[in-house]
C-alpha cells in the first residue's frame, strides 16, 4: 500500500510516497506519520480489450505445382532455367 508521508520519519521526508505493507501503513497512519495515498500505483490497470481477429488473405504460390514441357524432372530446377546447353562437338 502506498502512503504519503506527512512528517519526517527516518529518511522519509514529507511528500515521499513509499510502498509499505498494509500493517505498516496502518501503524504509520495511526501514529500520524503518513496518510493513505490517493493513487495506488501498483493496482492493476484494467485489461486491454482483445483485438478482433481478422482473416488473413492467403496467397498460394503454386508456380511449381505442375511440370512444364521442358521440365527435366530435376528437383530444385526452375522451369525458366534453360539448363545446360548442349556442348558442341570438337572438330577433329
Amino acid at each position: 500500500m502506498i502512503v504519503k508521508i506527512k512528517i519526517p520519519h527516518g529518511r522519509w521526508v514529507p511528500g515521499n510516497m513509499p510502498d509499505v505493507t498494509r500493517q505498516y501503513a496502518a501503524e504509520l497512519v495511526s501514529r500520524g506519520i503518513a496518510e493513505i495515498a490517493e493513487v495506488q500505483g501498483r493496482l492493476d490497470l484494467p485489461p486491454k480489450k482483445a483485438e478482433e481477429e481478422k482473416d488473413q488473405p492467403i496467397v498460394v504460390n503454386n508456380y511449381f505445382m505442375s511440370p512444364g514441357p521442358d521440365d527435366t524432372g530435376d528437383e530444385g530446377e526452375s522451369p525458366d532455367d534453360p539448363g545446360e546447353k548442349p556442348r558442341k562437338k570438337k572438330k577433329d
Binding site: 513509499p18 500493517q23 505498516y24
Partner: peptide
C-alpha cells in the same frame, strides 16, 4: 497473479 504485484517487503517497506 501478475508477477509485478508480488514483491518483497523488507521491514515493512517494499
Amino acid at each position: 497473479i501478475n508477477g509485478t504485484n508480488l514483491r518483497i517487503y523488507a521491514g515493512g517497506t517494499v
